[in-house]
Each structure stands twice: as structure tokens, then as C-alpha cells.
Design a protein around this nucleic acid. Structure first.
Length: 625
DNA sequence: GCAAGGTC
């Protein structure tokens, strides 16, 4: 009998795609008792030396198999002081719902010579791989374990991954294990402490869970930070000089190089000097081609930001809709950090699939008639998923209105990536007037190219500039002083928040939207709709509770030399750096867990000692006088 | 009743 090899992917869709390539399209599908999504695919495959031709069962898990929790006697909120959770024993157990999946792996492993792990090639994937290995080995202790290294599900790439397996990266798996333990201990300890303490302070907190998490709190911190900047904003008056020339029936406005100053007397004096010079001199006339670059291939973070901005959906909604489109086979996997297309992907074939569309089908045809350009490459590659792109065309009548909007965006974005940049002719004119420099610029859009399909970008020709020659002199039609006031920044919008989280390493592409949803659910922030119609913006405003928590924690650590407030992203960032050290092999999991726990324990003890400050902040905002 | 991370 042929040797048997068990393959396990991170999710059903990958199992199916890999099985399709390895089997050349002919495999048997068996359902798995107890789970409707996971399937076992059986087929023959020649792995080459040393395995040779084998019968294969390809199956999957659905993300992590296990979860970490405290031992039973520590799960009650009154069972121990919250601080004890820094040391309380924890155990990893297969989730109740994942039991049938784990059992399937144990059963399949029993008759298998080897286990090939096909989880995503990222940190979480390595950890999920160890969970799969544990199950397989408990079914068959002698099973040999390998790992397939792949970054997309293109056929040749998959086949090579099957024939050139590597080993699991224990360092990366350990880094995730450390993250899991830290998130649990720190999250639970602070959540219980602040919930139990603050519930006593105000009537409206009585039944509330006041959660703390290393991601949700910095997310809240960003919202409060902006809110306070808006509240504390004091407008300042500034003055500037504007110069206008009327020529060939066109009014040309020249902008001051200094933009504006906050000293009226100084500006007045500068203007006087200009006026007494009478004539201005053209110091530069620059004609140069300008281009507006087509967008980069689409990542999750970008999809969420663009979704909030142009599709009027919050980030969680966009992701839900994108997942539905993915599950139905219309777009590629929507969780990716990759903004470069692999060379192996046949992009033209994907463009061709858009031919039937009434809105951009013609544009797609023109691309393949010679206008096609290889997409730009960004600098990110998660080695697991390609940029988000349409994989098949769908008739809009088959989609609901949100799905239509997201699919349209993904399709237009993809076609834009495969297009030429927009081209234009720019003119910059610089003049010297007295001692001061001014400039005017014009733009003529010559070729719209990608703009024709990517309706979300705007790039318009400006008013035509009249002719100027370098060295010529003219007397301006007008030269005036103008007055203005600095304006407050707006409240934080969701796309801005996602940008901040991304830049500060708070959450992952897949979880950022969840953290924002979490702080809404906890009533730390609310969404305020301002304006109407096209100019409508959704602003995030902290509630009194959200403001009180941030203020309270800031006060608690205000006079500590090294403690950084929990509302800031730095602690999480530090944890991230330590995880990278585990990945590099320079620190062990145990060292990192101990170090990080020590750091957070210090803040915890301090918070406990000064719990009155947290309570005072809550009372200040939440208890009526 | 707590976290964050996978995925459905």
C-alpha cells in the first residue's frame, strides 16, 4: 500500500486550492463529522525523493485550535485578587467548537507516515502549526513533521512547496505563545481590577465591564488625544501677503513663500518694501511634465481606510463585506499586508475576466489592447497572501448594495494598478517682489489614464496660466495683506485612526477594525456624524468614561520616572520588539514573558496603590454634582 | 463577565 501523507492548512479555502493543484483537479471530498466547513480531500501525489508517490489527505483547521485560559479555580472574578493573575497557572486547551477538527487530525494522523503543515507563512501560522503538530502526534507519536513554505496558491509555487518542505519555525511559534500569555494575564488582571474598583464609583458603571487590553487602550488613547487637542485649541491670527496680476484676461494669484506670519507689524513692513520696489521680477519659469501615480496594489489597511473614506462604511463593515465576497469566490483573500504582486500571477488573465462589466469592461479591454502596465510594487510582503484583487467577474445584480460598492472598489483599484500613471504638464512661476519671493503654479492634465477607471482619485487641470518669461518685470495689479485664523484640527476619523494604529503597530490588518468596534461596544467612544451628503464625515469622540480612564491612568503614572501610561502605544510596541527578539533567537519565550510581566506588574501595583486617582477621574466626569 | 489572534 502507498504511503500516506497528511496535509493540514490554516483554513478550508487554502486546503481546497492546494488540493486542486496537487491532484491536478481530481480528488475525493469527504466531510468531517461535527464541522460543516472543514473537508478532507484525498488524492495521489508524487512528492519526489524521499517520499515518492503517496496517497494524500489534505484538510484544514479554522485558525487557532486552542485557547489559553486560567485554571478553573481562578476564573471567577472574586476567586483571587486581580494581581494574582500575573502568576496564576494557565492552561492551553482545544476550544470546545474545535474538538471535531482536532479529532479529525488525530484520526488522519494515525495512518500517516508524515504530516505536512500548510498554515500561512506568518507568525500566527507557525504557532497554529505547532497546535496541529500536537494533535497529530497525539494520534501518532511517530509521525514525521514537515512544513510547506508558500506565499500564494499559484500552481507551480504550490507544487514546489510540496516537494521542498522545510521545518516549523519554533522561534516564531514561541513568540506567539508569549504574546498569547501576556495578553491574557495583563488583560484579565487590569480588566478585573478596574471593573471591580470603578463599578463602585458611579451608578451607570454598576453593570459594566470596563475592559483593558494592550490594543484597545492605546486605540482609545488616540481618540482621546485628538479630542483634547481640539478642545484645548486656541485660534491664532496670522497675516500674509498676496500678490495678483491680471494678464491676458486671467487673474494669477501668487502665493507667498513664507505662507503667513503671526506678527502683523512685520508683515506690514514687508509689504511696504514690496510696494516701494514697484516692479516684480520673474526669477523662474519651469515647464515640466508631472504625473500622478497609479495606486499601489491593495492591502487590508488600505481597503479599510479607503472604505471609510469613499464607501461610507466603517472598517468592520468593509471587512465583513469583503469576507463575504471572498467566500463567494469573487475577490482574493481580504486580509493581507502585501502591496506587491508576485510575478507568477497572470494579471492579464484577471483583467480579461472584467470584460463583461458594463462600467469598466471597455476599460479592461483597452488595457489588454496595449495599455497594460505592470503594477507598481510597494515595500510590504507578508509572504502569505497576494494584494486584494478580483478573481472573477460578478454580475452586480447578484450582490447587495454594500457588496456592490466593495467589489466595485476592488475591481477599479485592480484595473488602476495595471494602468499607466496620469500625465500632465506643470508650470511653476517664481517672482521676486522687493525682498520677498512668491510663486504660482498651473497644471494641465494631458492623459488621464488610470484616473478614468479609478474614480476615487481627483487630479484636475488648474486654470491656464498666461505666458511669462524669465527675467521680465511687471507691476502687480494688486498686492495686499490678508488676515486669517488658525483652525482647530478635526476630531479623529476612522481612516485616520487606522493609519495611527498601523504606524504604531497596534493590532494586525485583521484585528484593527475589531479593536475600534470594541471601544465602541465598551462605550469608551461614540461615532458622531457631521455634515451631510457627500461631505459627511464620521468622527470618533470619546465618552466621559473613555476620557476619564485615559486621564486617570495618565495621572497615575504622571510622576513615575519610567512608567508610560497604559493609554499610550509604547508598552505594546516594546512587547512587539521583544517578540522580534524571540523570533531572532536572541531571547527565550520565558525571558520575554517574565520581563514583560515585570514591567506591567510595576504599573499594576502602582495603579492599585493610586486607585483613588482613577476613581477621582471617573467621579469628575460621571457623577453629577 | 476579562485579552488578542487566527477564521466561518
Amino acid at each position: 500500500m502507498a504511503r500516506k501523507i497528511l496535509c493540514v492548512a490554516e483554513k478550508p479555502a487554502i486546503a481546497r486550492a492546494v488540493a486542486t493543484h496537487m491532484s491536478g483537479g481530481s480528488f475525493q471530498t469527504h466531510s468531517v463529522r461535527g464541522n460543516q466547513y472543514v473537508k478532507n480531500y484525498e488524492f495521489e501525489f508524487n512528492f519526489g525523493a524521499p517520499w515518492g508517490s503517496c496517497s494524500v489527505t489534505m484538510t484544514s483547521v479554522i485558525g487557532h485550535l486552542t485557547g489559553l485560559d486560567f485554571e478553573r479555580q481562578y476564573r471567577g472574578w472574586q476567586s483571587c485578587p486581580p494581581g494574582a493573575l500575573f502568576e496564576a497557572p494557565v492552561k492551553e486547551e482545544v476550544d470546545e467548537k474545535k474538538m471535531p477538527i482536532a479529532e479529525n487530525i488525530r484520526n488522519q494522523a494515525r495512518y500517516s507516515k508524515a504530516l505536512f503543515i500548510w498554515t500561512d507563512c506568518d507568525r500566527e501560522g507557525e504557532h497554529i502549526g505547532t497546535e496541529v503538530r500536537t494533535q497529530a502526534m497525539s494520534g501518532n507519536a511517530r509521525i514525521e513533521v514537515r512544513r510547506a513554505k508558500f506565499s500564494n496558491t499559484e500552481r507551480a509555487h504550490v507544487l514546489r512547496a510540496a516537494r521542498e518542505p522545510i521545518t516549523l519555525d519554533e522561534f516564531q511559534a514561541n513568540a506567539v505563545a508569549a504574546r498569547i500569555e501576556l495578553d491574557l494575564r495583563i488583560g484579565a488582571a487590569f480588566t478585573r481590577l478596574q471593573t471591580l474598583q470603578l463599578q463602585q464609583v458611579a451608578e451607570i458603571l454598576k453593570e459594566k465591564v470596563i475592559s483593558y487590553g494592550s490594543c484597545q487602550f492605546p486605540t482609545l488613547g488616540f481618540v482621546v488625544d485628538r479630542y483634547l487637542r481640539v478642545q484645548n485649541f486656541k485660534p491664532e491670527t496670522f497675516w500674509g501677503i498676496k500678490v495678483m496680476l491680471q494678464r491676458e484676461g486671467i487673474k494669477v494669484n501668487f502665493l507667498w513663500r513664507r505662507v503667513h506670519l503671526f506678527d502683523r507689524a512685520a508683515v506690514t513692513m514687508m509689504l511696504e518694501r514690496c510696494l516701494s520696489a514697484k516692479q516684480a521680477k520673474v526669477t523662474k519659469v519651469n515647464q515640466k511634465p508631472k504625473s500622478k501615480w497609479r495606486p499601489l496594489p491593495l492591502t487590508t489597511v488600505d481597503l479599510q481606510m479607503m472604505g471609510s473614506r469613499y464607501l461610507r462604511m466603517d472598517s468592520q463593515k468593509v471587512m465583513k463585506v469583503a469576507e463575504a465576497l471572498y467566500t463567494k469566490g469573487f475577490i482574493s483573500y481580504p486580509r493581507t499586508e502585501t502591496d506587491q504582486f508576485d510575478k507568477a500571477i497572470d494579471l492579464k488573465k484577471l483583467v480579461e475576466k472584467q470584460y463583461p462589466d458594463g462600467r469598466w469592461g471597455q476599460y479592461a479591454r483597452e488595457l489588454l489592447d496595449g495599455k497594460f502596465r505592470t503594477p507598481r510594487s510597494g515595500r510590504h510582503n507578508d509572504q502569505a497572501h497576494p494584494p486584494i484583487h478580483p478573481v472573477s467577474w460578478v454580475n452586480p445584480s447578484q450582490l447587495n448594495s454594500d457588496e456592490k460598492k466593495v467589489y466595485e472598489f476592488v475591481a477599479r483599484r485592480f484595473l488602476a494598478c495595471c494602468s499607466e500613471d496620469a500625465k500632465g504638464q506643470g508650470t511653476d512661476i517664481e517672482i521676486q517682489y522687493g525682498e520677498e519671493m512668491f510663486h504660482a503654479s498651473g497644471l494641465i492634465v494631458l492623459e488621464r489614464n488610470y484616473l478614468d477607471v479609478y474614480v476615487y482619485d481627483k487630479w484636475e487641470s488648474s486654470q491656464n496660466l498666461p505666458n511669462f518669461e524669465k527675467g521680465e518685470r511687471f507691476e502687480p495689479t494688486e498686492a495686499n495683506i490678508f488676515e486669517g485664523k488658525t483652525t482647530a484640527p478635526g476630531y479623529l476619523t476612522e481612516p485616520e485612526l487606522i493609519g495611527l494604529m498601523d504606524a504604531n503597530g497596534i493590532g494586525t490588518d485583521a484585528t484593527m477594525a475589531e479593536h475600534i468596534a470594541k471601544i465602541k461596544e465598551r462605550e469608551y467612544v461614540v461615532v458622531n456624524e457631521r455634515g451631510s451628503g457627500r461631505s459627511k464625515v464620521s468622527e470618533l469622540i470619546p465618552t466621559k468614561l473613555g476620557t476619564a480612564l485615559v486621564e486617570g491612568y495618565d495621572n497615575v503614572v504622571a510622576d513615575l520616572p519610567n512608567s508610560i501610561s497604559l493609554s499610550k502605544p509604547f508598552l505594546r510596541k516594546e512587547m512587539e520588539l521583544r517578540m522580534l527578539e524571540i523570533c531572532a533567537g536572541s531571547k527565550t519565550r520565558q525571558e520575554v514573558v517574565q520581563q514583560s510581566l515585570d514591567m506591567y506588574r510595576e504599573v499594576f501595583i502602582h495603579t492599585q496603590r493610586r486607585i483613588a486617582m482613577l476613581k477621582t477621574a471617573c467621579r469628575k466626569y460621571l457623577v453629577p454634582e
